[in-house]
């Protein structure tokens, strides 16, 4: 376990020593503060659009940070050849995969805490209202979802040589699931037969990441999601994370690293 944490530690150090995170955070902060400064009809109590914009930016930033950070992990180890001194030490390839996953996931978690803390401070200062439990649920679900995404990216990064292709593909896939996931079955029913079957199948076998988006509950102050549902969703995400990690390990185990 300490080996896995050692591997994770390197990833976390990498994230906070690179500029990407800060750039995205500053961008989010500026856009949010800018949006918050606009005056609509001399009513300074209007706040939901600010929450909406800020959360959208947080979702985009967090997705970009986690995907881009994860996609380069294994390719960078191979390109810099650090994978060789690493694997020459008593560490298994499975441990490398799990360590990289954990590092990316924890690093993303740290980023999320920073982002949501900013969100809470900015919106709270406007509406004098801090529904901490709802925020906690929203962050947790967001983080759990990014766990699945990170495992997915790790799997992709073993098969695609260029981190940019892995990033692009996963961002499109994840974006597609987030936007269409709920509607896929309705869409399927409107299609002719081979497509209808394929889409329906996709609907049932794909990871339903759209569940983890609780932005509406936060933006519209709609209270809490039942804890039981959050727990079940967490379990579901853990299973998907596990599936992707095992697939990643199976690919990495056979991978010829010398070419």
């Amino acid at each position: 376990m300490s080996k896995i944490f050692a591997l994770a530690g390197v990833v976390i150090k990498e994230l906070y020593r690179r500029k990407d995170f800060y750039v995205l955070f500053v961008l989010t902060a500026l856009l949010t503060l800018g949006a918050g400064m606009v005056n609509f009809f001399h009513d300074d109590k209007i706040v939901r659009y600010v929450k909406d914009i800020c959360l959208l930016l947080i979702w985009v930033s967090a997705l970009v940070i986690s995907v881009v950070t994860t996609a380069r992990q294994i390719p960078a180890e191979r390109e810099a050849r650090t994978i060789f001194p690493l694997l020459a030490k008593p560490v298994s390839r499975a441990q490398v995969i799990v360590g990289k996953f954990l590092g990316c996931w924890l690093a993303t978690g740290v980023a999320l805490v920073v982002f949501y803390f900013f969100f809470a401070v900015v919106t709270g200062s406007k509406e004098h209202f801090w529904p901490w439990a709802a925020y906690l649920e929203a962050v947790w679900m967001h983080w759990v979802m990014l766990g699945v995404v990170i495992a997915m990216v790790l799997l992709g990064s073993i098969y695609f040589a260029a981190p940019s292709s892995t990033s692009t593909i996963t961002i499109i896939v994840v974006g597609g699931i987030l936007l269409l996931g709920t509607h896929l079955k309705i869409i399927a029913l409107q299609q002719p037969e081979p497509m209808q079957f394929i889409l329906t199948l996709g609907y049932f076998v794909m990871p339903h990441l759209e569940w983890y988006d609780l932005r509406d509950f936060v933006v519209y102050d709609m209270g809490l999601v039942p804890v039981r549902a959050v727990a079940l969703a967490t379990l579901y995400a853990a299973v998907w994370t596990g599936i992707f990690l095992v697939l990643a390990w199976l690919g990495f185990r056979r991978k010829n690293l010398t070419t």
């Binding site: 500029k19 750039v23 930033s61 940070i65 881009v68 990033s167 692009t168 961002i171 974006g175």
Partner: peptide, 16 residues
């Protein structure tokens, strides 16, 4: 600024 991350942000924004 890593050009990749900027591209990714813009792409994701446009996509969303």
């Amino acid at each position: 600024i890593s050009p990749l991350s900027m591209l990714a942000v813009l792409g994701a924004l446009a996509f969303t």
